[in-house]
């Protein structure tokens, strides 16, 4: 087995960063959603994501063995060291854009965690099994809203189509292969293996939603290597401000 603890830690960090950054984004909605019910489910999803991030980043810290825990990783890294995908850091925009982002990401994350439930790394497998149940709900709620908005009014169809269009360039990045050593060792999965299932799931919902699948375009990538959009730095400056301002404090 060629994968060492550091490799697994890096993988766990990228998984944890996806959850953390999207959880942070969804937290921005709290108190401002179009209905109380939407407010509650967005907070619910955010809460699940922050929970996943905590487990994954804590585990990464343990594997590294350098005294970092989930908080240290979340609050004391800068943009170049975050390895989340670009999709999750995109600004919320209107509810149409938020839901399109959620729809794409949750469908991806569901297949990913289902596959990782059989990871040879028992901790990652355990986290993935637990998270897959949560994410199945996220994917369902987001898909339902895609259909409501797509097959709602003219305005809602247009807005959700714009949201989808905004996010579409970031889809291919989700399917970038992680470290080959990890795939070989059965710790990680190659997401290319479930791309057909992803496309089928997305297309089925888009059909119900009377929405066209956006045209293929050049993928925007870089997140997994720390090369992010302009938005991440702002997100971090807000999320990390207390920890950075008071580095000696415990909360």
């Amino acid at each position: 087995m060629g994968a060492d603890r550091k490799d697994i830690a890096r993988y766990a960090i990228s998984l944890g960063d996806d959850s953390l950054i999207l959880g942070q984004r969804l937290g921005e909605w709290c108190g401002h959603a179009p209905t109380l019910e939407i407010d509650l489910f967005l907070a619910n999803i955010a809460l699940d994501l922050i929970g996943q991030a905590t487990l994954l980043l804590d585990y990464a810290g343990t594997l590294e063995g350098e005294g970092r825990d989930g908080d240290k990783l979340a609050f004391h890294r800068d943009v170049l060291d975050f390895t989340n995908c670009l999709l999750v850091e995109q600004p919320n925009g209107d509810f149409g854009r938020t839901i399109a982002r959620q729809f794409l990401f949750s469908n991806f994350q569901l297949l990913l965690f289902q596959a990782l439930s059989n990871s040879t790394d028992a901790t990652i497998a355990g986290i993935a099994r637990k998270a897959a149940k949560e994410v199945a709900y996220h994917a369902r709620v987001a898909s339902e809203w895609m259909v409501r908005l797509g097959d709602g009014t003219e305005e809602s169809a247009q807005r959700v189509a714009e949201g989808l269009d905004w996010s579409w360039r970031f889809v291919d990045e989700l399917f970038e292969a992680p470290d080959a050593k990890l795939i070989e060792a059965g710790v990680a999965v190659d997401p290319a293996s479930f791309r057909p299932a992803f496309d089928a799931a997305i297309d089925a919902v888009l059909r119900d939603a009377c929405l066209a699948r956006p045209a293929d375009r050049r993928a925007t990538v870089g997140g997994r290597r720390g090369h992010h959009s302009e938005h991440l730095g702002h997100l971090l400056s807000q999320m990390q401000f207390l920890q950075r301002t008071y580095p000696d404090a415990r909360w």
Partner: peptide, 20 residues
């Protein structure tokens, strides 16, 4: 969005969600 730890963020989210 500015809660100082992952645990505090989760607890606050849960709390505000309870209020809703």
């Amino acid at each position: 969005t500015r809660a100082p730890s992952l645990r505090r963020k989760a607890v606050l989210l849960a709390k505000v969600q309870d209020e809703g």
